[in-house]
Design a protein around this nucleic acid. Sequence first.
DNA 1: CTATATTAATGTAAATTGTACGTTTATTCG
DNA 2: CGAATAAACGTACAATTTACATTAATATAG
Lengths: 236, 236
Amino acid sequence: MTKRTLKKGQAYSEQRKILVATDCIVFGIDEGILKLLVFKRRIDPFAGFWSLIGSFVNEDESVTYAARRVLQQFTGLENIFLNEFKVYSNVDRDSGARCISIAQYALIRKNGYDTGQVEMHGAKWFAFDELPELVLDHHIMVADALKELREKARHRPIGFHMLPDKFTIPQLQILYEAIYGRKLDDRNFRKKLLSFGLLTKLDEKDKTTSKKGAFLYQFDDEKYKKLEESGFDFEL
Amino acid sequence: MTKRTLKKGQAYSEQRKILVATDCIVFGIDEGILKLLVFKRRIDPFAGFWSLIGSFVNEDESVTYAARRVLQQFTGLENIFLNEFKVYSNVDRDSGARCISIAQYALIRKNGYDTGQVEMHGAKWFAFDELPELVLDHHIMVADALKELREKARHRPIGFHMLPDKFTIPQLQILYEAIYGRKLDDRNFRKKLLSFGLLTKLDEKDKTTSKKGAFLYQFDDEKYKKLEESGFDFEL
DNA sequence: CTATATTAATGTAAATTGTACGTTTATTCG
DNA sequence: CGAATAAACGTACAATTTACATTAATATAG
């Protein structure tokens, strides 16, 4: 890396050499196991190898838009929860070109979608202990994203984005256990969770996992937004 | 924004239109007041207006490197603490060109440096309630950075980067009060702070603010790194 | 050379929150 | 109708946070 300074009054047009891409670390929960969606890369170098889902950012779109566009393509889903967490810009990170990548993790409601559209695009869900090798610096992105997710999920109610709109408390607990990678006490989890007053209990029960059945709840987004503004800390 | 999809096997070379810049939100503490360093922009559009310190990212440097380069230029300081926190990529954010900016906040030890090199470059420190208008979306960046700083400072020991290597506990408290924008209880602040065991008490005293004098401390970086690895939460 | 003013430092009791457990409840199925 | 199973509830103790009062060190004014 040579030292070079921007000359006074340098024109915009002198600067045209860096490509901008975005890569998505797509998380989903499946049978209590946190999984990652990756696909077979189509462009050289490394065409045919496993890669994160990503795209170049076109001139007429924002980074977020580019990510939504490519996620929509692969999963068919809109309104996916996205969180940009780091820019990868090492000069030699991509042997194909000088290209920076804005990494974002995406949380998706993985339910049935995993068979259809996803596989059509050569994409596949992997558990973290069965991840294949990934191209470029994507394995670093994944490790960083996991760290970010763990930290963020503790302080913000983002886990809900990986569950259906209506969910049970045991389901949520299993999700958190998958994210943190450790067991939680069910009684304390429930107590703390409900103490926030952010869940609306429904009259319906989910009976798929027990004879007794567990009540379904919904997350109260409106209420959360109000609380957040007044400096409320979620902390689970 | 038009919908456009990346064609299969699209070559890297077809994508060349977005400029990459970085802007630094430079924080420093001065007499218990949190301040921001801005400078008079030199390139059109808006040459002559107040702007964050920033630069285009050259092809042969990383984003961090570009930020360090430009900060070095303005302050003469190396090893400035930098934290990338958001990418601004709206299509119309810069009327001069299609340009994304990777925003980073920088924490600097503002002490004497503010007169010399800084003013030579047409830069100036402003308190937050006296900020001038800034170009482009820079006022949004500042607001976002402040929010990030407040959140980060609560959970990570980054405030120290704005103080001299040797500092007193009252100094640190004043810093935190400036960051949070509210008073803290001195007895509880000290108790919690010392409970981490991350400060090394020196034999020297600083007598500039009181007759009694306050003991100087140093932050134990080594010890913190070890604790951090084993999942320790700073929380002040 | 003593009293006063000023900031630093230490302490403690009550309230709140977190942790570690045991028990009861609703339901299906044999 | 009893056994099995996951859900839901409750409680005692530990740890942490909060609110508040006192003592200590020293320069300076009188």
